[in-house]
C-alpha cells in the first residue's frame, strides 16, 4: 500500500538505520499493489478475480470499498505487532518548524531512565533530524519520503522491522512536517500528538481542522516567545476546542523547559496503559 503522493513515483523512499549508517530503498511505492487479495468487505465476487464470465457487457459491480482500506489494514497489523510487544507508539505531527524534534530531544533526555525510547524520523530529505536524535543515545531510523508529504502505515511497518524496538518501550514517530495529508493516514499509533507553536498563526486549528480533530493531544510549543509575538492563546485554544472538544491541550516550551511536567505526566499515563491491549487479548 502506498497512497503516497503520486509524484513520488520517480523518487525512491529510503530507510536509513543510523546505528549502521546503511540505507535501503523501500519497495517502489506501487510494486506491492497486487499482493494479497484481502478483501474483507462483503462482495459476491471476491473469489472471481480474473474471470470475465461474471462481467457481462456494461455490468455494474458494487465495490463499497474505502480507498484508504489498504493503509488501514497495514495500520492494524502494525498496531497488533506493537501490542504484542507492549510497545507504545505515538505519531507526532505538525507544520514544519513547530518544534517536534526539539521536543523529542528534550523528552528522551529527561525520561530515558523511566521508559526506553526509539524513534522513526520522517522527512522528505536528509538525515539531519535523525542525527539530532541519535546524539541523545536513542536508536533511530530515518525514512526519507522523497517528494511524498507524509508517512503511511506500510512505511511504518518497514521502519519498525528495521528498528526492532525493545519489548516494553516507546516508539516516537516524527511525521513529515505537514498539517494536511498526515491526518488521513493511520500509522498504527496509539495516538496522534499535534504540535502547534506560538510563532504560527493562532487560527491554525480552524484552518487545518482535520489534523486537530484526528489528534488526541495538542502541544502549544514555544510559549516562552509569547511576549514577542502577536499570538492570542485564548483564541487558539477556543478554535482548537471548537474543532475537537476532547483535545487535551498542553502549552509548554521545549527549549526553556516550561510546563514539560504536564506533557510528561500524559506520557507516563500512556506508558502505564501500554499493556492494556495485550491484557485484553489474553
Amino acid at each position: 500500500m502506498c497512497v503516497t503522493c503520486g509524484c513520488s513515483d520517480d523518487s525512491d523512499v529510503r530507510l536509513t538505520d543510523l546505528r549502521t549508517g546503511n540505507t535501503m530503498i523501500l519497495n517502489p511505492p506501487h510494486e506491492h499493489t497486487h499482493d494479497g487479495h484481502t478483501h474483507t468487505h462483503g462482495h459476491p465476487h471476491d473469489h472471481e478475480h480474473g474471470h470475465t464470465h461474471q462481467h457481462a457487457k456494461g455490468t455494474v459491480v458494487s465495490l463499497e470499498q474505502q480507498v484508504l482500506a489498504r493503509n488501514d489494514q497495514w495500520a492494524e497489523r502494525v498496531r497488533g505487532w506493537l501490542a504484542g510487544r507492549a510497545v507504545l507508539a505515538l505519531n507526532l505531527v505538525s507544520s514544519p518548524g513547530a518544534g517536534k524534534t526539539t521536543l523529542l530531544e528534550r523528552t528522551i533526555r529527561d525520561l530515558a531512565e523511566e521508559m526506553p525510547f526509539s524513534v522513526i524520523e520522517g522527512d522528505q530529505q536528509t538525515l539531519r533530524d535523525a542525527e539530532r536524535i541519535q546524539a541523545t543515545g536513542c536508536p533511530v531510523v530515518q525514512i526519507n519520503t522523497g517528494t511524498a508529504c507524509h508517512l503511511d502505515a506500510s512505511m511504518t511497518a518497514r521502519a519498525l522491522q528495521q528498528l526492532d524496538p525493545h519489548q516494553n518501550s516507546v516508539v516516537m514517530i516524527e511525521n513529515v512536517g505537514n498539517l494536511v495529508c498526515p491526518a488521513l493516514f493511520d500509522l498504527g499509533e496509539r495516538a496522534k500528538v499535534v504540535i502547534a507553536s506560538v510563532t504560527e498563526g493562532d487560527d491554525k486549528p480552524i484552518k487545518y481542522p482535520h489534523m486537530f480533530r484526528a489528534s488526541e493531544v495538542m502541544i502549544l510549543n514555544k510559549i516562552d516567545l509569547l511576549p514577542h509575538v502577536p499570538f492570542d492563546v485564548d483564541r487558539c485554544l477556543e478554535f482548537a476546542r471548537q474543532v475537537n472538544p476532547r483535545l487535551r491541550i498542553i502549552p509548554l516550551s521545549a527549549t526553556r523547559r516550561d510546563n514539560l511536567a504536564e506533557w510528561y505526566d500524559w506520557l507516563r499515563a500512556q506508558w502505564a496503559g501500554r499493556t492494556e491491549l495485550q491484557e485484553s487479548l489474553a
Binding site: 500500500m1 502506498c2 497512497v3 503516497t4 503522493c5 503520486g6 509524484c7 513520488s8 506501487h30 499493489t33 497486487h34 487479495h37 465476487h45 472471481e48 478475480h49 480474473g50 474471470h51 470475465t52 462481467h55 459491480v61 465495490l63 470499498q65 480507498v67 484508504l68 489498504r70 511524498a148 508529504c149 507524509h150 494536511v180 495529508c181 488521513l184
Partner: peptide, 21 residues
C-alpha cells in the same frame, strides 16, 4: 498534493477487481 496517490489507489483497486475486463 496527495490526490494523485489517491487516484493511483483507485485505479489499482478497480483494475484488480475487474480482472481482464
Amino acid at each position: 498534493m496527495h490526490e494523485l496517490g489517491i487516484a493511483q489507489e483507485i485505479i489499482a483497486i478497480v483494475t484488480e477487481r475487474a480482472g481482464i475486463a
